[in-house]
């Protein structure tokens, strides 16, 4: 069991040792990345993640739902493998074929950044600092983390995969069972099995902030009286007015 944990960390070291190959077109500094988190192990968990890279600072936020309540959820940015998520129905070496963390390493690689709460440590070697993780069924997490230049570059390129861990396979309401974790034999496998996964990809736009004020009187200011006149006219003309306007616009 120890060996798979060691293998994961060895893979991290190997990755860091690699020269920075010509990266595919990714996000530039300050661009946003997003991930849609979907369940692994039929956990019922889901969520979203958002990140932006500024130099060697990665600002990241997570919103999750459907996790086991009252139990810590280890969460990381994984980098490596194919930088993807395994399918929800992928089976592994865990409880009744459950996917353990190392069973998904071909897809998402080893831990690169540990997403602990302040002031927890964020290096890969702190991947199981269980006291520092969120422990609710649904939570909002946000933190800015200093990482190496390589990791910053990889995250900006869209190579990061968010993995949230902790699955109550037997529905007992807590992490238990005879299967030991592939990451730490002191822990039940339920505590570290992956529950949700999402690939951090560069957003295809500068994402607007806040809701959209497309209501009626929510448009205030100088233009409003003009809108009243036009609105009445448009109503009177009905579809004809719109068609006419459309012709003008497309010529």
């Amino acid at each position: 069991m120890r060996t798979s944990r060691l293998a994961l960390f060895a893979a991290t070291a190997a990755l860091v040792g690699l020269p920075l190959a010509a990266a595919p077109a990714g996000a530039a500094d300050g661009d946003e990345l997003t991930a849609e988190l979907t369940q692994l192990n039929d956990s019922g968990a889901s969520g979203t993640a958002w990140a932006t890279v500024d130099g060697t600072n990665v600002e990241i936020s997570l919103e999750t739902q459907g996790l086991l309540d009252g139990a810590p959820h280890a969460q990381h940015i994984h980098i490596g493998g194919q930088n993807t998520c395994p399918a929800n129905d992928k089976e592994g070496n865990g409880f009744e074929g459950a996917l353990q963390t190392s069973d998904g390493a071909d897809e998402y690689g080893p831990i690169a950044v540990t997403l602990t709460k302040e002031p927890g440590m964020t290096g890969a070697e702190h991947g199981l600092d269980v006291a520092d993780f969120p422990a609710e069924a649904s939570y909002s997490y946000s933190r800015t983390i200093e990482v190496s230049q390589e990791v910053a570059q990889q995250v900006a390129n869209g190579d990061g995969v968010i993995v949230v861990h902790g699955v109550d396979h037997d529905g007992s309401g807590e992490y238990d069972g005879d299967t030991k974790s592939d990451l730490d034999p002191e822990l039940p496998s339920e505590a570290t099995d992956p529950a949700a996964c999402g690939e951090l990809n560069p957003a295809q736009m500068a994402m607007p902030h806040g809701g959209v004020e497309t209501g009626g009187s929510s448009t205030s200011g100088v233009e409003y009286p003009a809108a009243i006149g036009f609105g009445t006219l448009a109503l009177a003309l009905g579809a004809f007015g719109l068609v006419a306007a459309r012709r003008r616009a497309t010529i």
Binding site: T34, E36, T48, W50, A203, G211
Partner: peptide, 14 residues
Amino acid sequence: SPKDEFPRVDVYGA
């Protein structure tokens, strides 16, 4: 969705 809980990542995300 309430405007103050606008699902920004779902709507505008990659």
